[in-house]
Design a protein around this nucleic acid. Sequence first.
RNA 1: GGUCUUGUAGUUCAAUGGAUAGAACAAAGGUUUCCUAAACCUUAGAUCUGGGUUCGAUUCCCAGCGAGACUACCA
Length: 596
Amino acid sequence: MTLESILASALQNTLKSLYQINIDADPKLIQPTRKEFSGDRTIVVFPYVKLARKAPDMVANEIGSQLQQTLDIISAFNVVKGYLNISIKESFWTQYLSQHFNEEHYGLVPLRDEAPVLIEYSSPNTNKPLHLGHVRNNLLGHSVSKITMACGHPVVQVNLVNDRGIHICKSMVAWLRYGNGETPESSGLKGDHLVGNYYVAFDKHYKEEQQQLIAQGLTPEDAEQQASIMLEAREMLRQWEAGNPTVRALWQQMNSWVYNGFDQTYDRLGIHFDKVYHESETYLLGKALVEEGLAKGVFYKHEDGSVRVNLEADGLDEKVLLRKDGTSVYITQDIGTAQLRYEEFHPQKMIYVVGNEQNYHFDVLKLILGKKLERPFGDTILHLSYGMVELPNGKMKSREGTVVDADDLMDAMYDEAKASTEALGKFQFTPEEADKLYEMVGLGALKYFILKVDPTKNMLFNPEESIDFNGNTAPFIQYTHARICSLLRKADDQQLPWRKDLPTDTAMNENERELVKALYQYPDTVLAAGDNYSPALIANYIYDLSKQFNRFYQETPIMKETDESKRLLRLQIARLTAITIHNGMDLLGIEVPERM
RNA sequence: GGUCUUGUAGUUCAAUGGAUAGAACAAAGGUUUCCUAAACCUUAGAUCUGGGUUCGAUUCCCAGCGAGACUACCA
C-alpha cells in the first residue's frame, strides 16, 4: 500500500460520509507538497468543491479534519487556497527507511510469470558501421527493456539485421574492384569499418563515373542508370537472389566481418539480444498473408499486376504490398515477421524501437495487421518512435561525411574521462582499475547525455557539452555514488553498527526528510517510466536525487555527528540513496563506481 | 499540397490540467581546520502569436507563424 493509495481510499470514504459524493478519488490529485508549504502530500480539493456546494477552504478543512480522525499516519494538516496540505507522521518515514535501507533490489518488481514483451531495436544494415543515430536507438531499446523487466514483465530483446539488398552488394562490388583482398586482419581495421569504407568507395567511384558519362553527353538520369559499377551491383543482387555460390560466399565473408565489428560495439555499449533475425532469412515472409488478404478482399490486385491495399479511409494512402513481378517489399516482410514472432513468443506486446521517420510505415503496419488482417496482435504493436540526433552544424549525412561514428565517439569519451580524471590528480588506481573507471565514466556520460532527453524529441548532440562532466551528467551522479560508498566504507572501518533498526523516536531535519521522501518515490518512478517507456524519467529523477544528496551531505559531516541515532539515520539514508542511484543507473545501462 | 511530430532563460534539457514554470551549462560573486571540491551557496535570465474549454492551461482544442520528418514497386 502506497501513501497515495492509502490517502485516496480514505479520501473516497470521507467524501462519501461528508457530502454523499460517490466518486473515485483521483490519485493524481494527491501529490507531493511543494517545498514552500508545510506538509508531505497535498490534496487538490477544487474538483469536489462544486459537488459539495461549499467554499474551497471549508471543503479542504472539513476533509482534512475528517482524514486526520480516520488515518493515524496523519500528524497535521493546513489549508492554503483550496490546497489541503497533509503532514505525515515522522514515524512513517523512519519506519519506511529502516525497512528498506539495505534492500539491494529496492524498486524492482519481481518478474511475473506472464507473456513476454518483445522489444526490437538496433536493426542495423551490414554495409556500414554504427553511428550516433544507432547509439540512441540501442540505448533506448536496452534501457526500455531493463525498465520493462524492472516493472515485472519478462522481455525478449530481438534484433533484425538487414543483411541483404543492393547496399550490401555495393560494398561487395567495391571490395572486389578496389580491395586487393584486404581483410580486417590484414588492415587492422574493425570489420564493420572496413566494409563501410568500401561502401563509401562505391559511392565515390559511382559519382565519378556518372560525371564521365554526363561529359559524354548522357542525361544525369541515364548516367545514374547506366554507370557500370551500378550495373555490376544490380547484377550481383540478382546473383545473390539466384543463390550463386561465389556471390553468397563473398557475402557471407563480408557480413561476418561486419558482425564481428558490431559485436564489439554492442559489447562495449553493454547490450545483447536474446534473438537475432536476419532479413536474408525473413525477406520472403509475408506473402502468405498477402494471399490471405486478397482472398478476404481487403487487398486487391492493381491493373499493373502489383498487389495493393487502400488505406485512404483511414487517412493514409494506397500502399504496394507485392511488386508487379511478385516480389515483396519492406512492409510485406514486416507483416510476415510480426506473424512469425507472434507464433514464436506469443508476446503480450511488441515494441519496435525505430526512428520517427518511419512513423508512417508503422501506422500502415498496424492498420494492415489489426484492421485488415484482423490479427489479435495488431493492436499490441507499439512503435517506440524517437527523434533524430542533430549536430550543432546541422544533420548527420553520411554522404557529406558529417556522421559521428559510434566507435570513434566511445573512444573520445574514454579519452576525455581519462584526461579529466588525471587532471584531478587522483592516482590511487592500478592501470586496470583506471581503465575500467575511464570506460565507466566516459560511456556513462555518453549514455546519460542521450537518455536524459525525452525520446520523442529531436535532440542536439553537442560534442563539447556531452563531455562536460559537471551538472546534469552521469559523472556527477557517479561521483555522488562513489562518495557515499566511501562514507560507508569509513563507517565500516570504524566498526559503527549502523545496519540496524532506527530508534522509533528519531527525528529528522528538513533535508533528511526531503531525501527520504525522494527515495520513497523511486519505485513509483520506475513504474511510471515503464508506463511511458521513458528512460528520461529515471535519468532526471536520479539526477535530482543526487543533487539533493549533495546538499544533505554538505550539511553536517556525518562521521563527526556525535548524536548516535542521528548518525545512524544519516548513514541509512546514505545507504538507500546509494542503492537507488545504483539501481536507477542500471536501468539506463550505466555502471556506477564505488570509488573514483 | 496532405499527414504526423515539435516550439519553454543566451544554450541544452525538465515540469501525470494545479500553488510563485524547475535544473544544468555559459556569466558575475562567494565557501575548503570538514565523511572525496568531478562538491556546495548567492545573483541575473524563459512558456512563439491569437482565440477557446476550465475554478485553474506550458500542458487540452482551433487558427496562424517557425522548425523537422514522412508522403518509394529502398530498407
